[in-house]
C-alpha cells in the first residue's frame, strides 16, 4: 500500500467534567489509531455517544487533542500550520439546518472559504468558482442568491458539501452527513459523495451510525465502542466475517427487507446499557455486555491485533 494520506496515531481527547468538588475526565476518544489512504473512504460506525464525532473534530483541530498526533501527507498537523491545513482537510456537518448561517446567501456560504483563504482575485472569478462548485453538487445557478432556509434538507446538505469542496481539499471528514435526511435523499447524497470522489479524488472519513450506508460507501470500516476502535477491516470482510462480538451484534441488528432471512437469522441482543464514559469498566470496555467475557477481560484492555488481510480486532477471546 502506498503512503497514507491521513495517519492518526494514539489520538486521545479527554474532556474535564466537573461534578461537585472534583473534576473527572470524560474519555471521549481514548487511544485511537487509523489511516486513510489517498482517495479512499474509511467508514466509522458506532452507537450514539461513542466518540465518532469527537474523532472527526479532534482530527481537524476543532478540539485541542489531549494526546496523540495526526499526520497529513506525512506532515504533522499542529496549531501553527492548521490554517494552511484547513485548505487540505474539510468537514461536512451532520445537521444541514444548523450548519448553514441563516443570514447568508448560498453564494456567501460557499464563497466564505474562498474569502478566508484568498483563493480568488476578483469578484468575477469568485462568482465563477461558486457556480462551478454549485454545479458539482447539483445546484442551479439561480439558487446562488437565496438563503439557506429556502432549501430542503438534501439541498442544504449539498450546500454544505459545496462549501467543504471550495478549497479543493484532499480529505473531508463527513460527520453523519446523511443521518438527518430521509432515506430517498440519503441515497442521492451518498451517490453524490461517490461521484465526487471519482471526479476529484478526495478521501473521506465517513462517520455514520448506519452500517448499511457505511458499507455502501466505504472501502474499509472501523467500529468504535466507548471511545475505542474495536475492529477495522475491509467493508466486505467486516460484513461477512465480523470477529468482535460488538460488531457481530451491530450487524445482526441491520434490518434486511426480507422476512425469510430475518426469520432465519439469529439476532444478537446485547444485555445491559452502555456504561457511562465517566465510569468505565476495568479492562475491556465492552466486557460488561459481552457474552464471551472472561476473567482476562476485566484485567487487561485488549489492543488491536492483526488477524490477516488488514483485519484488526481488539478482543482476547475471538
Amino acid at each position: 500500500m502506498s503512503e497514507p494520506l491521513v495517519e492518526v496515531k494514539n489520538l486521545k481527547q479527554y474532556f474535564p467534567v466537573r461534578s461537585g468538588m472534583k473534576t473527572q475526565m470524560l474519555k471521549a476518544v481514548d487511544d485511537v489509531s487509523f489511516t486513510v489512504g489517498q482517495g479512499e473512504t474509511l467508514g466509522l460506525v458506532g452507537e450514539s455517544g461513542c466518540g465518532k464525532t469527537t474523532v472527526g473534530r479532534t482530527l481537524l483541530r476543532l478540539y485541542e487533542p489531549t494526546a496523540g498526533e495526526v499526520r497529513f501527507d506525512g506532515e504533522l498537523v499542529t496549531d501553527k500550520n492548521i490554517h494552511a491545513m484547513r485548505k487540505q482537510m474539510q468537514m461536512v456537518f451532520q445537521d444541514p439546518y444548523s450548519s448553514l448561517d441563516p443570514r447568508m446567501t448560498v453564494e456567501d456560504i460557499i464563497g466564505e472559504p474562498l474569502d478566508v483563504h484568498h483563493l480568488c482575485s476578483g469578484r468575477k472569478e469568485r462568482r465563477e468558482k461558486i457556480l462551478e462548485l454549485m454545479s458539482y453538487v447539483g445546484l442551479n445557478a439561480e439558487h446562488a442568491r437565496r438563503y439557506a432556509h429556502e432549501f430542503s434538507g438534501g439541498q442544504r446538505q449539498r450546500i454544505g458539501i459545496a462549501r467543504a469542496l471550495a478549497v479543493n481539499p484532499k480529505f473531508i471528514v463527513c460527520d453523519e452527513p446523511v443521518s438527518a435526511l430521509d432515506v430517498s435523499i440519503q441515497a442521492q447524497v451518498i451517490n453524490m459523495f461517490e461521484e465526487l470522489q471519482e471526479k476529484l479524488g478526495v478521501a473521506y472519513l465517513f462517520i455514520a451510525h448506519d452500517l448499511l450506508v457505511v458499507h455502501h460507501i466505504s472501502r474499509r470500516i472501523a467500529v468504535m465502542y466507548l471511545g475505542k476502535i474495536v475492529e477495522i477491516a475491509d467493508a466486505d470482510e467486516l460484513n461477512e466475517h465480523p470477529i468482535h462480538p460488538y460488531t457481530e451484534s451491530l450487524l445482526s441488528a441491520v434490518p434486511i427487507p426480507d422476512p425469510e432471512i430475518t426469520r432465519a437469522r439469529q439476532r444478537i441482543i446485547l444485555e445491559g446499557d452502555v456504561p457511562s464514559p465517566l465510569n468505565m469498566p476495568s479492562g475491556c470496555a465492552f466486557r460488561t455486555r459481552c457474552r464471551y467475557a472472561t476473567e482476562q477481560c476485566t484485567r487487561e484492555c485488549p489492543a488491536l491485533s492483526n488477524r490477516g488481510g488488514g483485519h484488526q480486532v481488539a478482543c482476547w477471546n475471538r
Partner: peptide, 21 residues
Amino acid sequence: NEYILAARAIGASSGRIIRKH
C-alpha cells in the same frame, strides 16, 4: 450553532466569526 463550528473548520478568524456570523 454548528455554522460557527463550520466557520472555524473553514479557518475563519474570531474577528470574522463575530463580524460575519
